[in-house]
Design a protein around this nucleic acid. Sequence first.
DNA 1: CCTACCGATCGGTAGG
DNA 2: CCTACCGATCGGTAGG
Lengths: 195, 195
Amino acid sequence: MTEVAAARRDVLLATAEQLFAARGYQATSVRDIAEAMDIKAGSLYAHIETKEDLLWEILTAAADRFFAAADPIVESDLLPMEKLRQLIAAHVQVITDGASLAAVYMNEWRHLTDLRRTEFTARRDAYEALVRGIVRDGIRSGELADLDEKFATLLILSSMNWIYQWYRTDGPMTPDEIARKLTEMLFKGLRRAGA
Amino acid sequence: MTEVAAARRDVLLATAEQLFAARGYQATSVRDIAEAMDIKAGSLYAHIETKEDLLWEILTAAADRFFAAADPIVESDLLPMEKLRQLIAAHVQVITDGASLAAVYMNEWRHLTDLRRTEFTARRDAYEALVRGIVRDGIRSGELADLDEKFATLLILSSMNWIYQWYRTDGPMTPDEIARKLTEMLFKGLRRAGA
DNA sequence: CCTACCGATCGGTAGG
DNA sequence: CCTACCGATCGGTAGG
């Protein structure tokens, strides 16, 4: 593949990502994508075989980013709570860095056909297991309270994953501020200390 | 309208709700809905004018439930933190009581056409404002820490709204247990007390 | 609630 | 990357 063709493919993926995030996969036609690129629908098929390939590549790229951000932290020898703090910062960074990528990742995977959907959810579960492992270690080390491990993991993931819904690049908070505030609220709780 | 016709309409709405929750609005055809009811697609239009009417009625019913659960608590004269505790329990109850309704509520509203989408998001914002009002009062009364009010509200809402993703009627936790655990984690935080 | 049908749009292909 | 087109499916309607 030539460099130019590779670049065109990246434009195609970025265009599809934006439209899938804004309207959803099913509501986005190949003609919508082509029009946004100023080409004809049939021309897309010089780059892909099916519309689902676009979704699959976007979802795979998103999963790759989350793992690339988390893996070095998980494998480090930091204490569990510091691992958790850094993982939250890294995860939030991935989301704020590509809010439309995150939106597709959270919402559109169920439109994959069976085999790919199974592979996707397996990776998602594996990521959840990484977070859960840190939570478990934190409970054992005594840094975290004696929590329901699975429930706490879901609370952490859900609070992070909701961010793409309201985050705006031109909003008042930087990604780091978001991560810091979230970590503090999750760790310390909403109650006034001593109340 | 006869009672029989009203009952058929309820079946239609319940069927659409299930399918919209499972596959998404756009991926569900009127033929899918008709087939699930063992009738022909054209027959649906004895009950509705457009497919979007189904989505709109489901979303309106969902919003009604959330407000019906929250309003008496908001208008009570309980202390802010107790209000928040009860609101979380009531909100979780609505979600666990109808996980597919909640799924449609969270995911499918963006497929509404402009006017209805605007009305929907306005109601959603109004609900968020209810929660935020309690959070504000809790901060002022000193029951809650000196939090970023909006951020804390989003944390509470996101942690509640994620529940439909994993809740199963035959799972190990009752709705009350979920609400209790969630409240405790949100209020006390994940860190070991004194750590 | 059914039969029979409408125009529009869908994802995708052949040949250039 | 385009033109021209394919069969399938879409939401919806008329008349019974």
